[in-house]
Design a protein around this nucleic acid. Structure first.
Lengths: 165, 165
DNA sequence: AATCAAATTGTAATAAGGTAACAAATTGCA
DNA sequence: TGCAATTTGTTACCTTATTACAATTTGATT
C-alpha cells in the first residue's frame, strides 16, 4: 500500500531543508504566542535535532552546542531540551534515553513513536486510535490515563527493503 | 463499572501472600520447562519484586540482595533482573528506569503498563487491541513493529478515590 | 538612559543508572 | 573424579542526569 508524504513521516523521502525551516518557523510562531523565548541556545538545540532527524542523546547534543560556542556542562543541554519538550517542540524517547524534534508541533498531540532499529530514524504516527484503546483497556481496571508513552521499535520501509534484497 | 479481580490487576484488593506464592510457583514451573535455573539470587530477586508489588530501581533491588547476603556490585542485580526479564518473569519499565515482577507470566504477552503516579503500583492491562491499533498506524507509514513499549501514567482507582474525598 | 527584578546561561560538583572484563565458585555430566 | 559450561563476585569505568550557585542578559519601569 502506498502512503502520502506527511510532516510526521521521517521515513518518506522529502525535502529536508524545507522540512527543517518549516519546523523552525512554526516553532517561532508557537513560542511567540505562548510568550516564551527562542533564545540562541534553544534555537541551536532545535536546529541540531532537526538536522539530525533522529533521536539524539543529551550529551551528543551538548557536544554540538559546545562546538557552537555554548557551555560544555550538562545542564546547558538538559535545560534547552527540557524547554523544547515543555513547549511541544521536541520529545523525549524513554526507550533510547534520547530526544528528537517534534515533527508536527502545534497539533496538540500525544504521539506514538516509530523507531527504526537500523537507521535510528524516528517518525510519529497518528495516535488517536491507539490512545483510545489504551484508555479503554485502562478503564477496565478503573485506571485513569493521564500521560502515556508509546514507542515501537522495528523496521522502517527503507531498511526493510534493504534487508530483503 | 465494577471489574473482576485479575492476576494482572495490582490495584484490586487481593490476598498478596497468595498472589506472591502463586507467581513464584508459576515461575519455577516455567523455568523447569525451559531448562533454566531459578538460582538463589534469581529467586530472591523475584521475591523482592513480588513483595514490593511495584516498580523498583536496580540499585534498590541490589540493596535488598546485599542485605540477604549476595554481592553488592551492580552486575549482581542487573544480571538477575535481566534473566527474569528474558524469561518473562519480570518487565523493565523504561519510563521509570525500573523493573517490576510480571503479573501473569506464561500468557506470552507484550503488556501495557499502568503506573499510578501516587502509589507507584504497576498493573498490566490487556494489550491486544492497543497493539493491533499500533501496528495498523505504523503500517500506514510502511513501518513494521517488532517490539513496543506502552506505559501509561495516571491514577489507580484507590488513589483517585482518595483524591476525590 | 539608569535601575531593578526576572529569566537565562555558565560552571562545579556529584548522584544515579548501567556495562565490560575477568577471576572464583558452582553445577551437571561424561 | 575430572572437565566444560554456567553462574556469581569484584574491580573499574562509562553514560546519563541533577543540585546548587554564580554571572549574565533581558525587559519593564521610571
Amino acid at each position: 500500500m502506498q502512503h502520502e508524504p506527511d510532516q510526521g513521516d521521517a521515513f518518506a523521502p522529502h525535502d529536508h531543508a524545507l522540512c527543517q525551516s518549516r519546523a523552525l518557523a512554526e516553532a517561532e510562531e508557537r513560542l511567540r504566542q505562548q510568550g516564551a523565548r527562542l533564545t540562541p541556545v534553544r534555537r541551536r538545540t532545535l536546529e541540531i535535532l532537526l538536522e539530525a532527524h533522529r533521536a539524539m542523546g543529551a550529551y551528543e547534543v551538548l557536544d554540538r552546542l559546545a562546538e557552537a560556542g555554548f557551555g560544555r556542562q550538562p545542564p546547558v543541554a538538559y535545560r534547552a531540551l527540557e524547554f523544547l519538550v515543555e513547549h511541544g517542540l521536541a520529545h523525549r524517547l524513554q526507550r533510547l534515553n534520547a530526544f528528537a524534534a517534534c515533527l508536527h508541533p502545534g497539533e496538540d498531540h500525544a504521539p506514538v513513536f516509530l523507531i527504526c532499529r537500523v537507521c535510528d530514524k524516528v517518525a510519529e504516527a497518528h495516535a488517536a486510535n491507539v490512545r483510545s484503546e489504551l484508555s479503554s483497556a485502562a478503564g477496565e481496571l478503573g485506571f485513569t490515563v493521564e500521560r502515556a508513552t508509546v514507542e515501537a521499535l522495528g523496521l522502517c520501509p527503507a531498511c526493510a527493503g534493504r534487508d530483503a534484497e
